[in-house]
Simulated scan of single mutants.
Amino acid sequence: MKFEDLHRGRHIEAGPACVLAAEIIEFARKFDNQWFHTDPMRAESGVWNGLIASGFHTCSIAMQLVATTILEGSESYASPGLAYVKWPHPVRPNDLLTLHVDVLESKVSTSKPWLGVIRWTWRLVNQNDVTVLELEATSLFKLAA
């Protein structure tokens, strides 16, 4: 999508993405090596009653959905960061995740008129419509000359 397509009030859905136990373990072994992400047997008797995905894995899934659905072919080139990120519920093996994106603000920078700024929320839900990720991001787009 182009910057012009991302106007305030726009709602976009992406997914679903299926999360496999092997992917949860692989990601965690590499980036978040905690037993409740990497050891299914031990996780069964843990506080989460089973294996759960790393929150950062959950963010990566959301990013992949945004990249392939919204940002592919766009002028997006950077993000200065997130206002917040929350993981209200865990992601479990075989969850089907759908992303809901809502554009809060779309503006052209006053100091850099070649720069478009998008402020948006991303909400990732599982197959039961339970929210597993909420975040607010700012994304930058190079505008056509």
Rank of each mutant, 00 (worst) to 15 (best):
G50Q: 07
K30F: 05
A53T: 12
E134H: 11
M63H: 00
L124N: 12
F141D: 07
K107A: 12
L140V: 02
V47R: 00
V19E: 09
M41Q: 13
A144K: 13
A22M: 09
A14F: 03
S139N: 11
R8K: 08
T110Y: 12
G15H: 00
L20I: 04
P80N: 10
Q127L: 14
L20A: 13
L51C: 06
R42W: 06
S139Q: 13
V125Y: 14
W87A: 04
A53S: 09
Q127V: 11
P88F: 14
I61K: 01
H57N: 01
N94K: 06
L20K: 14
W120C: 04
L20P: 01
S76G: 03
S79P: 06
V132L: 15
A145T: 06
S111E: 15
V47Q: 05
T68G: 10
L6G: 10
T110S: 15
H100N: 15
A43M: 11
A67S: 12
A43V: 10
R29Y: 07
V66A: 00
D5P: 04
G50I: 01
P80I: 01
S45I: 02
V117K: 15
E26R: 14
L51Y: 07
L140T: 06
W114G: 01
A145L: 03
P113G: 15
A43N: 08
D32A: 08
T68E: 15
A17N: 02
R123A: 14
D102Q: 09
F141Q: 03
A17D: 03
I61D: 05
G116Q: 09
L143E: 04
L143Y: 01
C18V: 14
L124P: 12
W122E: 10
Y77N: 10
E13Q: 13
L51K: 01
D5V: 08
C59Q: 03
D102I: 00
P90V: 13
W120P: 02
M1C: 05
W48H: 10
A43L: 08
H37N: 09
P80V: 03
K86G: 00
I25K: 09
I70D: 08
C59R: 01
S111W: 15
L124E: 12
E44Q: 12
P40G: 09
A144M: 03
T58G: 01
V103S: 07
H7C: 10
V91S: 09
A22S: 15
R92A: 13
V108Y: 07
R119Q: 06
R29W: 05
F3D: 02
L97A: 11
A28N: 12
W87C: 06
G9Q: 11
N128Y: 15
E23T: 05
F3A: 01
G15S: 07
M63T: 00
K86Y: 04
W87L: 06
E23K: 09
E23Y: 04
E75P: 03
T58K: 04
S139E: 11
V130P: 02
A14E: 06
V130F: 08
W87N: 08
F36G: 00
P88C: 14
K142H: 14
Y77V: 02
S109R: 13
M41V: 11
S76Q: 03
F141N: 02
T131E: 10
A17Q: 05
D32G: 12
F3M: 03
L71I: 07
F27M: 10
K142I: 08
V101T: 15
R123F: 02
V19S: 06
P90D: 13
G73Y: 02
P90E: 13
C18I: 13
C59E: 07
K86A: 01
C18F: 07
M1K: 10
E72P: 00
P93V: 04
R10S: 12
S45V: 02
